[in-house]
Write a protein that binds this DNA or RNA. Structure first.
Length: 467
RNA sequence: GGCGACGUAGCCAAGUGGACUAAGGCGGAGGUCUGCAAAACCUCUAUUCGGCGGUUCGAAUCCGCCCGUCGCCUCCA
């Protein structure tokens, strides 16, 4: 497949260096607040990339970090009156719970910065020894001037960055863009001993140490949100290449566009967050995944409630297409030996072609909808759609879709016997041709969000989820 | 101020020089089915791609200018 590489700004044919195993490092979260839909978008994208690579026969070694020590974590923990560990544990649990709910496959390992202090100190020590870093005022800084190609990922120059003005002046730094590898501890902060005094790792160094330890360089894919390109990934490249001398640090840099909420990007500092938990309370994982994948991964996507609701409605087409054959349909199919079964190969080809084109999921999804329509049409015409149905499941599976009806909530489960009773009463009324009463029951159930569907096989009902 | 992206139907969103008489989804209109609905299916819903010029046999796609929106440059997926 062709895959865009942020470093070169071009699409490039992707294949793992060893031809078999893809080493994929994806930047994880800093766990100090609830997992939001922007995170969900990003991890759905990388999960889909991984699933597609696996579908093509590669083995994917996926490593993802937790940066579980930083200023915000310390601040939040103090505000809440709990330890940093308690706080991060809580949000790491939240992360796994919501990602599982979104059907995101787990990485091979989730190393945490606080549990990798040894390798981090080794990395910093080596950078100091090589002259790429220097201690100053209890901190240790990376010397950006020593790395000739600093700025190559974000495509900017040191001059340009300084011209940008908003660079903090720091007495201890040799150059304003030097960034911290090790932060000297202030009173009350969590700290670890180091050759430069007690302190904690800076933001970027953990990824350098952990990607080296768990995957070894060069990585095949390094990923994250576009907001990580600078400074995080820029600094990671600088550190990692300086540390090992191995270039490139990563063959392919993959960055997803950011989710927009209304006019603005959704971000922690703006406080305009929608948690995944909230979204999943109303919409199915399938609907949310399809929504996230309905625009190209490098483009920004407008998130809205209406958008989620629209996707939820569209999921019905898939679910309907995948319903097992009724007895009548099975009987017709059995007697209709002469008819060719529905051929789904062209849809798979379209799907693969789209995915090969820099993960063009919008077009892949279009192929899915077209196949679903074809199935719905042809099953009515008595053709066998069984193979096409399993093909649709297979293609959906690459996008992480399950096509399951949304699971009933507890209150809904409790209401089920009563709804069943009303429905069977209505069936009797219909048989007695008391349509007025029957329709009133249907309308009133509908106003409670219970949608009835009559067919030759009887009446089915389901909850209306898309508000 | 520097770097970058984008502007396609009522909404979301693909397509980035010729098969585009521009995917797909939502919404809307009509129809088939139905006791009536719902669901599903069928038909229709952008002679046109922010505006103005230019390059070309040919542009939504390339170039220039203008208008508008957004992102990064600071914690962020």
């Amino acid at each position: 497949m062709r895959l865009y590489n942020t470093l070169t700004g071009e699409e490039k044919e992707f294949a793992p260096a060893d031809g078999k195993t893809v080493k994929m490092y994806v930047c994880g979260v800093t766990p100090y607040s609830s997992t939001h839909v922007g995170h969900a978008l990003s991890y759905v994208v990388f999960d889909t990339l991984r699933r597609y690579l696996e579908y093509q026969g590669y083995q994917v070694r996926h490593i993802q970090n937790f940066t579980d020590v930083d200023d915000k974590i310390i601040q939040r923990a103090q505000e809440a009156g709990i330890s940093e560990d308690e706080l991060t544990e809580r949000y790491i649990d939240d992360y796994f719970r919501t990602m599982d709910a979104l059907n995101i496959q787990r990485a091979e390992a989730y190393p945490r910065a606080t549990q990798e202090i040894g390798p981090i100190l080794d990395t910093i020590g080596n950078l100091v020894d090589k002259g790429y870093a220097y201690p100053a005022g209890g901190d240790v800084y990376f010397r950006v001037n020593r790395k000739e190609d600093y700025g190559k990922l974000s495509h900017r120059s040191l001059e340009g960055m300084i011209a940008g003005a908003r660079v903090q002046v720091d007495e201890d730094k040799e150059h304003p863009m030097d960034f911290v590898l090790w932060k000297g501890a202030k009173p009350g902060e969590p700290s670890w001993d180091s050759p430069w005094g007690p302190g904690r790792p800076g933001w970027h160094i953990e990824c350098t140490a952990m990607s080296l330890r768990y995957l070894d360089y060069p990585l095949d894919i390094h990923g994250g949100g576009q907001d990580l390109i600078f400074p995080h990934h820029e600094n990671e490249i600088a550190q990692s290449e300086a540390h090992t001398g191995i270039q490139p640090f990563a063959h392919h840099w993959v960055h997803n566009g950011l989710l927009q909420l209304g006019e603005d990007k959704m971000s922690k500092s703006l406080g305009n967050l929608v948690s995944v938990e909230e979204a999943l309370a109303t919409y199915s994982a399938d609907a949310l995944r399809t929504y996230f994948l309905s625009s190209h991964y490098r483009s920004p996507l407008q998130y809205s409630d209406e958008g989620s609701a629209a996707m939820e409605r569209s999921m019905d087409r898939f679910r309907h297409a995948l319903r097992p054959a009724t007895e009548d349909e099975a009987a017709i199919e059995a007697t209709n030996q002469g008819q060719e079964p529905l051929d789904s190969d062209p849809y798979l080809e379209r799907f693969m072609g789209a995915m090969d084109d820099d993960l063009n999921t919008p077009q892949a999804i279009a192929a899915l909808f077209d196949l679903a329509r074809d199935i719905n049409r042809e099953r009515g015409a008595g053709r066998s759609v069984k193979a096409a149905q399993s093909r649709l499941r297979e293609m959906g599976g690459i996008l992480g879709l399950t096509f399951e009806e949304p699971a009933a909530r507890n209150d809904e489960l409790a209401a089920k016997p009563f709804i069943d009773l009303l429905v069977s009463t209505r069936t009797e009324l219909r048989q007695a041709r008391q349509f007025e009463l029957a329709d009133r029951i249907r309308d009133q159930l509908a106003s409670q969000g219970v949608m009835l569907e009559d067919s030759a096989q009887g009446t089915t009902w389901r909850y209306q989820r898309s508000a």
